[in-house]
Each structure stands twice: as structure tokens, then as C-alpha cells.
Write a protein that binds this DNA or RNA. Structure first.
Length: 264
DNA sequence: ATGGTAGCGTAGCTA
């Protein structure tokens, strides 16, 4: 089973690039974040025609929005609301073989890394706190599960272009990295792609639109992740980033797809 | 220290 996750930054604007991902990689399951569209306006028809007949979407006007697009049947689908909001950041679905996949778009957190003055950073930390409590109470780590998405945190030193210069930049601050680690430990999640790309190697999934030349400056961050429960570690076949997609024309997303293959 | 770009929706928010 091949699973891809991609912050597409508007599914309507980039529907042709989504079909390129489908044609080039043939994932069995694609999870999207930042679809930025209400469910009634989601462009499902061309995706269904391409074989992604099983879909579970939750979108809102302008912001956020997540989608699971699958060639394989989905069962027991659900939505999870965090921090008392219904803001389309977490959906899940069952897959054949007793697998469950969770697709999450974690709050970005704004600019200032101080929860007392920046409500967005406070929201990000509370979102993490709630998830840290939720997983052990609602799910078992012995269950085969995959958690994917834009977590808006780059946890490792080599998940950012400069660990020293990023310490006070939201996405790499010690407080959010510690909470992400607590979340990982909650069910013993394993960072799937980092089992194939050693922690000593730089690895990014996002490059800012604001750079004059994203590839030349190469100031990226690894914000997008695929985690698996211990029950699935032995099934991992490959894990990689589709870096070429950052240059896809016209109008690339600022995030690239992250992909794993599982022998299930 | 600042500003740089992008998407939605058509001003200003979010990233």
C-alpha cells in the first residue's frame, strides 16, 4: 500500500498537479491538507474518474480543510474536533487489513513563540496537549495505524536549514518540539520517513514562497510527516519526499508530497 | 530588523 500526504494549498487551484501526483506515483491513498474549499465545491469528479472512488473530505471556506482520497474502500470514517473548534483539521478512515489512517493539519502557530501574547501559538500548544491525552484514551498502539499530515513542526536539527537560527522561530522552538515528542511517545509512534533517511541528513518538505530562489537558498523545513504505530514498522518498504514537486509548473504548492510504501 | 510571496475572495486574514 502506497500512501501520500500533501499540503496542496488549494485543491481547486492545483487539481491538475494533484492528477500529476496520481499519474506519476499511483498512490493507493492520498491525504491532503489546506484544501481551502467547502465540501460541495470540492472537485471530486476528475479524481473519481482517475480511480480514487473512495473519499472522505472535511472542508470549510477559505481556510484549512483535509481530504482522504483512496483507490481502496474506506470504512468507519470520522472527524475529530480539537480545542472546541470545528475547523476541518483532522479526519480518519479505516482501510483494508484493519488499518486506520489519520490525516491532520496542525495549527501553524503564528509568528511570536509566546502563548501569552500570541493566541495562535497558544492554540497550537493546546492542540498538541489535547492530542497527547487523546491517543492513549481512544486508540491502542498495538493497532496498525498511520498518522499523516502537516504538523507544522520540524522536530530534528536536520529538519531545518539552521538549528541555531531557528530556535526562536515557530515550528522549531523547544516547547513545541517537546510536545511533538510527547505526542510521538503517547502511542510509541515511529517517524516512518526518518527510518529511511538518517537524522544526520538534511530533509525538508516545505520551502517558503518568499525566497527569491527556493532551490538555491534551500532554507527549508520538514513540516510534513508520516508516522506509523509499532505494529506497522516491520511493514515499511520505503519513505521519501517528492522534492521535484516544489518546482511543478504552473504554481507549485510550497509543500511537497511525502510518501511511504507498506507491505500490507 | 525588515520584508519578501501566495490563496481566498474581493478586505483582510492566514500561512
Amino acid at each position: 500500500m502506497k500512501i501520500a500526504t500533501w499540503n496542496i494549498n488549494s485543491v481547486r487551484l492545483r487539481i491538475d498537479l494533484l492528477m500529476r501526483l496520481m499519474d506519476e506515483q499511483r498512490p493507493d491513498v492520498i491525504c491532503l491538507q489546506e484544501t481551502k474549499v467547502v465540501d460541495d465545491a470540492f472537485p471530486l469528479k476528475p479524481l473519481i474518474e482517475r480511480g480514487y472512488a473512495h473519499t472522505h473530505i472535511a472542508g470549510m471556506k477559505s481556510y484549512n480543510g483535509v481530504a482522504i482520497l483512496s483507490r481502496l474502500p474506506l470504512s468507519d470514517v470520522g472527524v475529530v474536533n480539537w480545542c472546541g473548534r470545528q475547523d476541518c483539521r483532522h479526519i480518519y478512515a479505516g482501510l483494508p487489513g484493519g488499518l486506520e489512517i489519520h490525516n491532520i493539519y496542525l495549527p501553524s502557530g503564528g509568528d511570536l513563540p509566546d502563548p501569552k501574547v500570541n493566541e495562535k501559538f497558544d492554540h497550537k500548544l493546546r492542540f498538541l496537549d489535547e492530542m497527547i491525552e487523546w491517543w492513549p484514551s481512544q486508540r491502542s498502539g498495538s493497532r496498525p495505524m498511520v498518522m499523516v499530515g502537516d504538523l507544522n513542526i520540524a522536530p530534528l536539527e536536520n529538519d531545518v536549514w539552521s538549528h541555531a537560527q531557528m530556535r526562536d522561530v515557530v515550528s522549531h522552538t523547544p516547547v513545541e518540539v517537546a510536545k511533538l515528542e510527547a505526542l510521538r511517545r503517547s502511542l510509541g509512534w515511529v517517524d516512518a520517513v526518518r527510518t529511511f533517511v538518517p537524522a544526520e541528513r538534511k530533509l525538508y518538505s516545505w520551502w517558503s514562497y518568499r525566497a527569491q530562489n527556493w532551490a538555491a537558498s534551500d532554507r527549508g523545513r520538514r513540516l510534513d510527516h508520516i508516522w506509523v504505530t509499532p505494529a506497522l514498522v516491520g511493514a515499511l518498504i520505503s519513505g521519501f519526499h517528492l522534492k521535484d514537486a516544489r518546482g511543478w509548473e504552473p504554481k507549485p504548492s510550497d509543500h511537497v508530497p511525502v510518501i511511504v510504501e507498506l507491505a500490507v
